[in-house]
């Protein structure tokens, strides 16, 4: 059995009487690319940073590579790379100086890799960081987390200020890392299209809880919208399992269900004496529907 890279048991976090995370349990085996999706203020950053051990959970526990996050030993920290939402670069240095600074902090540093990426991503290494654009800062900040070739890479909104080309290059690099099957990547975003490309698993954070965790494909296949046209007026209670949202008016109803299985369609058609149109949803639609 492979040990899980990230795990949490009933994790909860309260900061100054405000409940930010509540009862989150998760387990992540290695080799996955997880997209963390959530509205602004849903608790994505808090979740990632608590998992990382920057903060002690108020309730429950979290662990990385089987070690308690809050007191990670140095050997485990070396296997982790983190890109914060707001970069923490030393703005008086040049890009190159910042790179060698971070390199000096690590035991191993893949210099050719970083040099190659610097050139490919067009990160200016000779200019002072305070003169860089937000996108360039973000790229540099990401490079700092890649140099020691971490097994677990945690990125908080890594591509928010990148242009489409830079974003594509960035995603390709993520995939390059992910092709080594033992690496795990965890990234939060609200750019759904990025997530659909590179993530194979998805966590949806809603109001401090995990509204969904699982395969992206499974999510897409199991959440559907049903357009029901009844021949007569539909009953008030439709009795369909796992309803996410429901809007009914007389003989017509629009219902979003999770955990859908195509065999259910026939059953509903017969029971309600209605035509049922099953509409697949894009991830963006699913996200919106889950927040209704």
């Amino acid at each position: 059995m492979t040990e899980s890279v990230v795990s949490a048991r009933h994790l909860g976090k309260t900061i100054q009487d405000r409940v930010i995370l509540h009862d989150i349990s998760l387990d992540l085996p290695p080799g996955n690319v997880v997209g963390v999706l959530g509205k602004n203020g849903a608790g994505k950053t808090t979740l990632l940073e608590t998992l990382l051990g920057f903060s002690r959970p108020t309730t429950g526990s979290s662990a990385l590579f089987g070690e308690d996050s809050f007191t990670l030993p140095a050997a485990i920290k070396r296997r982790i790379g983190f890109v914060p939402q707001q970069d923490e670069l030393v703005s008086t240095l040049t890009g190159g100086q910042q790179l060698s600074l971070t390199a000096a902090l690590h035991r191993r540093w893949n210099r050719p890799l970083i040099a190659g990426l610097c050139a490919a991503w067009e990160v200016p290494t000779a200019r002072r960081i305070q003169a860089l654009s937000p996108g360039e800062r973000q790229k540099l900040s990401t490079l700092l987390a890649l140099g020691h070739e971490p097994e677990l890479l945690i990125l908080d909104e890594p591509a928010s200020s990148l242009d489409p080309i830079a974003r594509r290059q960035f995603l390709q690099q993520i995939l390059e890392i992910a092709s080594a099957q033992t690496r795990t990547i965890l990234f939060s975003t609200h750019i759904v299209s990025d997530l659909e490309r590179v993530a194979n698993r998805i966590w949806i954070v809603r109001d401090g809880t995990l509204a969904w965790q699982g395969d992206l494909d499974a999510l897409k296949e199991s959440v559907v919208r049903l357009n029901i046209h009844g021949r007569t007026a539909l009953p008030e209670h439709l009795d369909i399992p796992d309803i996410v949202s429901c809007r009914a008016d007389g003989a017509r109803a629009t219902v979003v269900v999770s955990g859908w299985d195509d065999s259910q369609a026939r059953d509903i058609t017969q029971r309600l004496d209605a035509d049922v149109e099953v509409e697949s949803l894009s991830l963006e639609d699913i996200f919106v529907e889950l927040h209704r």
């Binding site: 600074l101 390199a103 000096a104 540093w109 893949n110 210099r111 050719p112 040099a115």
Partner: peptide, 28 residues
């Protein structure tokens, strides 16, 4: 702070691990 201008250009190095001339204490 040793400027690492050549960082972007010197891809030739075949050794993966390279030590950088800045002490850990200074870096911190």
């Amino acid at each position: 702070l040793t400027p690492d201008r050549d960082l972007a250009t010197s891809v030739s190095g075949s050794k993966v691990e390279t030590r950088i001339g800045l002490s850990r204490a200074a870096a911190m």
